[in-house]
Simulated scan of single mutants.
Amino acid sequence: MASTYNRPYSNKPGDHKIKLIWLVLYYGLAIHLPSSYSFMGKLFRAKAIRYALCKRIFLKCGKNVNIEHGCNFGSGLEIEIGDNSGMGINCTLPSNVKIGDNVMMGPQCFFLAFNHEYKDKSKSIRSQGYTDKKVTRIGNDVWIGREVLFTPGRTVKDGTVIAARTVVCKDFAPYSVIGGNPARLITTRE
């Protein structure tokens, strides 16, 4: 996983109040700033503003991280993201995802942290609640295409390439190229 992080605040109880201020600024302003790659995004320094806020919110935040327009990460208090990595436009992540170094993420990716319980046939699915929250881990040097869906608790190993619109519902070996619904091995990079 990522090696070098900026961590201006610890996780002491009082720090959560300070992080709440950064969250309000992120969701009230920075999430709405234009894409970092657009003329207006460059003019308003959108990438720098979102980065400055997120490095104060996330548990760990590496150097040269890009959080794009519309990215929703809940409270973000447990997120770890490594150097030179990013979250794509309009991505949705739970607040506990772990992302390594040099990870490229396309727009509109969606990470699930838990699922609905459904095994007890004597109760409606609605009344059974949810499964335990699981952490999704993304290794180093990973390319995640547009609109990829991650089921809870996936581990994406180093060097993996995930095709656009893939539903990642199982884990694969390092340097895999995967795609489809459900995800299947297309080839390897080795």
Score class of each variant (00 low, 15 high):
Y26H: 11
D132E: 15
G180R: 08
C54Y: 00
I178V: 15
T166H: 09
N90K: 01
Y130A: 06
T188L: 07
V97H: 01
P13S: 03
Y26R: 07
S3T: 14
Y51S: 04
N115P: 03
S176Y: 06
K98D: 00
K123H: 04
S10G: 14
G28R: 14
V135F: 04
I18K: 15
Y130S: 07
F172V: 08
E117I: 06
K47W: 02
V161W: 01
I89Q: 00
N84M: 03
S124Y: 08
E80P: 01
N181Y: 09
A113V: 09
R165M: 10
Y9G: 05
D83C: 12
G70E: 10
A52D: 06
P13V: 01
A164R: 00
S38W: 08
S10D: 07
V161N: 01
D132V: 09
C61R: 06
S85C: 13
T166S: 13
Q128K: 04
P174C: 12
I178E: 04
G62T: 08
T151V: 07
V161A: 10
L53R: 07
F58S: 13
I125L: 12
I138Q: 04
T188K: 13
G100K: 02
I178H: 04
F150E: 00
P94F: 06
L25R: 03
S127E: 11
E80D: 03
I89Y: 03
V24R: 11
S3H: 09
V168P: 02
N96C: 13
V103H: 01
I99P: 00
I144R: 00
L149K: 11
E78P: 01
L53Q: 05
I31W: 00
K134A: 13
Q128L: 09
S10H: 11
Y5T: 06
S10C: 01
K60I: 05
A183L: 05
N6R: 11
E80K: 07
K157A: 13
Y51H: 14
Y118T: 11
I186G: 05
I162C: 09
N64P: 03
I162R: 02
C71S: 13
I57T: 02
R189S: 04
N84A: 08
T151Y: 15
D101S: 12
D83A: 01
S3W: 07
C169T: 15
H16G: 03
P34V: 13
F73Y: 04
D171N: 11
S10R: 09
G62M: 08
G74T: 12
T187F: 10
A2Q: 03
F111E: 04
Y27F: 13
R189W: 12
E68K: 02
S176A: 13
A164H: 09
I138L: 07
S36E: 06
M87T: 04
L29M: 13
T4E: 10
F58C: 06
F44L: 15
G153V: 12
G14T: 12
A2T: 05
P182L: 05
C54N: 08
R189T: 11
K98H: 09
C54S: 14
Y118C: 05
G180Y: 10
M104R: 12
I99S: 01
A113C: 02
N11F: 14
T166W: 02
K19G: 05
T160Q: 14
S75E: 08
E68C: 09
V167R: 00
G41N: 11
A52C: 07
I49A: 08
A113R: 02
R50M: 10
A183P: 07
S85T: 12
S35G: 14
Q128E: 06
L77H: 08
G145T: 10
E117D: 02
D132G: 05
